[in-house]
């Protein structure tokens, strides 16, 4: 059976804190064969994708009182974002935030990306799935000193955008 490092974010959240950075630090410190046992006061759905892109599978179960236990296990296969080819192959950190903006009416995708970017720290990366190349978003990202890379997946249908948060004035 695999070894799991336990992280209980319930006290952090109860104190009004933001556990995301702590989770990512813990994940970064894991050995290749180690997993993460996360305890949270809700089902942390955004993490499934964020850690999935880092190569973790997850199993979640409710443990009573509205709390959840999630086991993140390193998967033997490469990360899902490898499908985007060299778009995500650079030395940027794995995305901490994932937005699926497919099917939204413009300019909603742009509003969501810029809103999410405001909640992130410098150097963090967000991955966004879109229906189209967001031509009107790029100048806004440049204005805010964020970097981006993007391209269509091999299916030619989904546009995958990575945004690295910069130092907005």
């Amino acid at each position: 059976m695999k070894k799991y490092v336990e992280l209980d974010v319930r006290p952090i959240l109860a104190a009004g804190g933001e556990p995301f950075g702590r989770i990512m630090e813990t994940v970064a410190s894991l050995d290749p064969d180690e997993g993460l046992r996360l305890l949270a006061p809700f089902r942390p759905v955004p993490l499934f994708a964020a850690l999935g892109s880092k190569g973790f599978t997850h199993e979640d179960r409710e443990i009573g009182g509205g709390d959840w236990e999630v086991l993140f296990t390193p998967a033997p296969v490469p990360a899902a974002t490898a499908a985007a080819g060299d778009v995500s192959a650079a030395c940027w950190p794995g995305p901490l935030m994932r937005l699926d903006n497919r099917g939204l009416t413009p300019p909603e995708p742009m509003v969501k990306v810029l809103g999410a970017a405001e909640a992130m720290q410098q150097g963090e990366v967000m991955e966004v799935l879109l229906d189209r190349e967001p031509a009107f978003l790029f100048p806004q990202l440049a204005e805010r000193k964020h970097e981006w890379r993007g391209g269509f997946d091999p299916d030619g249908v989904t546009y995958r955008l990575l945004v690295r948060i910069g130092t907005a004035p």
Partner: peptide, 18 residues
């Protein structure tokens, strides 16, 4: 309306209610 919206509110999208 779209160009006007982008011009006026683009700088504050995500930072203030628009």
């Amino acid at each position: 309306p779209f160009m006007t919206w982008l011009e006026c509110y683009g700088p504050v999208l995500g930072r203030a209610p628009t």
